[in-house]
Design a protein around this nucleic acid. Sequence first.
DNA 1: CTTAACCTTTCCGTAAACGGCAACCTCAGG
DNA 2: CCTGAGGTTGCCGTTTACGGAAAGGTTAAG
Lengths: 178, 178
Amino acid sequence: MPDPVTPVLGSPQADPAASHDTDEASPLLRIQEVADVVGLTTRSIRYYEEIGLLAPAARSEGAYRLYDADDIARLQFIKGLRDDAGFSLAEIGQLLEDETARAANRARFRESRSPRERRAVLLDGMARIDRQVATLRAKIERLQSMVQSATDRRAHLAGHLAEIDAEGHVRPHAPVPR
Amino acid sequence: MPDPVTPVLGSPQADPAASHDTDEASPLLRIQEVADVVGLTTRSIRYYEEIGLLAPAARSEGAYRLYDADDIARLQFIKGLRDDAGFSLAEIGQLLEDETARAANRARFRESRSPRERRAVLLDGMARIDRQVATLRAKIERLQSMVQSATDRRAHLAGHLAEIDAEGHVRPHAPVPR
DNA sequence: CTTAACCTTTCCGTAAACGGCAACCTCAGG
DNA sequence: CCTGAGGTTGCCGTTTACGGAAAGGTTAAG
């Protein structure tokens, strides 16, 4: 079993402008192979397709699903959101719509010669990212406020502890410094 | 409809030493009332009881569930974990076991006259809190790394944008500053 | 060409987290 | 004492996110 390292998270691809059609044909893996690579079951992968989270890059003559590197990245992205962030597949679907739109934007960007349109594409992409970030930040803030209250409680206990450790010789009831 | 403000999160009670049996009898609400207060359905509350997340402080003569302020705080805690943090009820159960142990510790703390035992109780409580915090921090870090990669992408787009905005007069193809 | 290993769709099952009855009981007010 | 609002247990239904088996087609190797 290829150990279940949660692979690098972060979304598929990073460079909207730099893919000059490098003629590396990505190998096109079959479903069990990608399952091993990303650490999912074939069942899950088919399920994700069923609910529209991704479609394989191609199908073989005999209808075998064939996945390319982009698909794998996308699946890793999904797994990261699911396992790490605890998002529901519905929420992931939302984020992926943005992701898909970004991909479309990359295409539009490359095919566009007009700086005006390029500007628009970039601004749109940035807006989408901002929305993703806002979603994530909201969750983070809530978690942080929980951490905060926990550490407050911890500090309170630590206060009592110090009080006790200053025991024996001193006051029996020191008023707790609020 | 009492607006669905997500109430203060953070766990039930904060002061292990200061409750001197203040004779305020907390009102003991019935299930629908607490449902309204915390923003849950009665069904959910009963379900949480079914799976052992909480038990009402008391039952009326005719077996009505009666909840006190602690119960409400606990329910708010549960709701915060569920809605805000996206924890499963199973995970929440874990965190609540710690919470319950903390409550027991408060009792032991009050009833103990021995500084040695008091020390032990405090240390145990702090250890439990540390574990909670570690759990929360883990989730936070994963989310933050997602935010990071998103902001990186954003910066990348912003770079292209700046490139375009320095358009017209300058180089047609400025090499992207890595 | 055969065959084992892998794949396909289809369908049925499951655990979690409730929603929503039914049938009955309880509580506060007039 | 009666009544209506609210509560109780019990049980079945539902959605999500898959697991697993059946029945059959596909592929690469020999």
